[in-house]
């Protein structure tokens, strides 16, 4: 199996507090990996470490290594902005810019130096198609993104992440603010996206993890308790704590 991320003995501290402790795992290319666990277990910290977004928190300290395509993302010669281009992110609440639909998607490519209007149009159309939003917005690209529904806004944010041509897309509870129909579309989209990208999703919805992911990592109090094929985790978990968590008896 081809690992895109190889996480080795990763620990993250917020001052004196442990965010995650001695985590080692491999994330596989073109697979959906779900990260589950109760609130405060370190799953979002883990996700935000993969694109070094966690560094923006004051007082944070990181130990261990995260190899991305074989290169440690914490090496001095790694540009975090370029890393975040390659490792895109979609957040819990849809957060479009107060700009047009077109400008939202074109924003990333523009700041990465693409100025040509035709090229930008091509990227916007392609990204919106990949985010399964094109048919719904193609006739109103110049309208404000804030006029879209919550589910459409979230798909717009996915299109925005796709527009910079990433290799990995991180999703931090991407459907928790959406209704079931919009959530279902995002879930289908994540499964579709893995054909081109590696998808890592933090979710509180364990049924969602079971439905969409190939691999599942279960975190508990900052530690990685169990990591395996999703089918295995949800049918025959090795660890009793995993079983108790996914069956709702703890956490």
């Amino acid at each position: 199996m081809d690992a895109i991320f190889d996480v080795r003995n990763l620990s993250v501290y917020y001052g004196d507090k442990i965010g995650i402790k001695d985590v080692s795992l491999q994330i596989y290319r073109n697979k959906v990996t779900a990260v589950i666990g109760p609130s405060g277990c370190g799953k979002s910290t883990f996700l935000r470490t993969l694109n070094r977004l966690v560094e923006l928190v004051e007082g944070v300290r990181i130990e261990g290594r995260v190899l991305f395509d074989g290169k440690n993302i914490f090496d001095r010669d790694v540009d975090p902005v370029e890393l975040r281009r390659r490792v895109g992110m979609v957040f819990q609440h849809p957060n479009p810019f107060p700009k047009s639909i077109f400008e939202n998607v074109a924003y990333g490519p523009k700041i990465h130096g693409i100025k040509d209007r035709e090229k930008l149009q091509e990227i916007v159309e392609d990204s919106l198609k990949k985010a399964a939003l094109w048919d719904e917005v193609k006739d109103r690209l110049s309208e404000s993104a804030l006029g879209l529904s919550g589910g459409q806004q979230q798909r717009l944010c996915i299109a925005r992440a796709i527009a910079t041509n990433p290799e990995v897309i991180l999703f931090d509870e991407p459907t928790s603010a959406l209704d079931p129909i919009a959530s279902s579309k995002i879930e289908e989209l994540m499964i579709e996206l893995k054909k081109r990208y590696t998808v890592i999703v933090v979710t509180h919805n364990i049924q969602q993890a079971a439905r969409i992911s190939d691999y599942t990592a279960f975190f508990w109090m900052g530690e990685l308790v169990e990591y395996d094929r999703t089918e295995k985790i949800f049918e025959y978990p090795e660890n009793e704590l995993t079983e108790r968590y996914i069956t709702g008896r703890v956490g």
């Binding site: 364990i206 049924q207 079971a210 949800f234 049918e235 025959y236 978990p237 079983e243 996914i246 069956t247």
Partner: peptide, 9 residues
């Protein structure tokens, strides 16, 4: 309840 693991078995 969409049970999993032992409950589903």
């Amino acid at each position: 309840f969409q049970p999993v693991a032992k409950d589903l078995r």
